[in-house]
Every structure is written in structure tokens, then in C-alpha cells.
Design a protein around this nucleic acid. Structure first.
Lengths: 115, 115
DNA sequence: TGCTGATATCCATGGGCGTCAATATTGACG
DNA sequence: CGTCAATATTGACGCCCATGGATATCAGCA
């Protein structure tokens, strides 16, 4: 995708009222982040060495069953916040910077409003 | 070229794994944004003239019952994304720029990761 | 081929959430 | 006071979702 598309699609909330369709797509991503476990997963993956973490790294970081972690990873992947790649027995997850940047830009508050 | 690191509380995801407590607080806000109606409400309020909108403006923008809008406004207010002020018969809502900025900064992706 | 470890899928369960009708509250105005 | 308009609260219903146990898939290895 080119930068114009990114810029155009990521204008802050203030610029224009979100149409239903776009709001639905963005809400899916925010809903995915709206779980403390998933938020920590994204944080761990983003901050992990090499920008990626395998599932074993994550299951070790939570007091949750392995299927639960796998479920959360699927949710994050389905909304485009994570990608996965299998290498041998292990599956490595990494964040999708463009997707995070899109959400970040959306919430950026213009100076004229931040008063 | 490291920018002035915003706030200690708002360092991007990459800097440090979120502890449970902080993740819980942030997840509450993201969960509130994880509904298309609420996302559009925030958008409408932020973009409305004067930076504020009364409930009547919102009920007119959705094909939803008035209690439903009122419920969504309460959710957004409870997580600190909106404030309300009564003036006469009308109640005006406005966004909390600091709260939005906190979330935006959290999702901002450092250059070394966005490669 | 069979075995073992890593990860994903399936299924059930309990709790949380979006919606709305009915009702309550609040303020303005006569 | 009484009435009306704007907004909030309550209660109920149906559905989605986080979680974990059982099981399946997949890759490496003997």
C-alpha cells in the first residue's frame, strides 16, 4: 500500500466522523486490544529480542493454559495486529507495525482540540 | 535521535513489557473503544463544533434507542475517555485529550521495530 | 515407522455485554 | 405546583467471549 492511502485512512478522529464500515474495522482491532492478556502479549512480542517471540515464550509468561494463549494469538492475528511464521517446531509471532501505527494515528489528538 | 520520551507512563509497548496492573487499566480503555458505536461516538464528539456534543446530537446520529446511547456514554466516561457537563436541560460530552494521547503513544511504533 | 514436544482446534461452561422497554431523575417554564 | 423535554437508571433477554480439558496436527528424531 502506498503512503497516501495510509495518510488518508489514518486521519485523526477529529477530522471526520467515522463511517460505520470503517468504525467496524477499527473497533475489531481495539476490541482485540481490550483484553489485558492480549495487550501484554502484544507488548511482549513487540519488546522481545528480534521483534518476535515464539509461543513457548508467551505460555511461560502467563499463568494460563496453552490453548488459551493460542486462542488469544489467533484473535490478534485475525485482526491484523500480529503475523506468524513457523520455523521448525516453533511458531514465531511478530507485530504488524502498520496496523499499530494506524490505530495510534487515529487516537492522536490535534493540538487545537487538546486544550 | 531519541525524542523526549513522552511520559514514563506512556512509553510505547516496546520499551517494557506491561505489568498486569497497567495492562488491565489500558485494556479497559481499549475495550471501551472496541465497539463501533462507541468509536463513532468518540469521533463525533471530538469532531463536533466546540469540541463537545450533547446527547441529543448523538441520539440523532444513530439508529439506536436513547438508553443505549446513554449506556455507551457511561462506558466511555467510566474509562476516562469522555467527560460530561450539564448545562440546563442538556448534557454535553467532550473528549479527554490526555487519555487519548496516552493510548496513542502506547501504540506508537519505534522506528527500529517498524522496519 | 513410531515417539516426543510444540502448537492449533474442538467443545463445553460460566460470565460479561449490547440492546431496548419501562421507569426514574433532572431542569426549564408556566 | 404541574407539565414537558432531556437524560439516566433499571431490568431482562440473547449473544458473544475468555478459559481450560481433550484431542488433533505438525515437525524433528531415532
Amino acid at each position: 500500500m502506498d503512503e497516501l492511502t495510509v495518510l488518508d485512512c489514518c486521519a485523526p478522529l477529529v477530522r471526520q466522523p467515522l463511517d460505520e464500515e470503517r468504525a467496524a474495522g477499527l473497533a475489531r482491532a481495539f476490541k482485540a486490544l481490550g483484553d489485558p492478556v492480549r495487550l501484554r502479549i502484544v507488548s511482549i512480542v513487540a519488546g522481545h529480542e528480534g521483534g518476535e517471540a515464539c509461543v513457548c515464550d508467551l505460555t511461560a509468561s502467563f499463568d494460563l493454559a496453552q490453548p488459551t494463549i493460542s486462542h488469544h494469538l489467533k484473535v490478534l492475528k485475525d485482526v491484523g495486529l500480529l503475523t506468524s511464521e513457523r520455523r521448525g517446531s516453533w511458531v514465531y509471532y511478530r507485530i504488524v507495525p502498520d496496523r499499530l501505527a494506524e490505530l495510534s494515528a487515529l487516537l492522536a489528538v490535534p493540538a487545537e482540540v487538546a486544550r
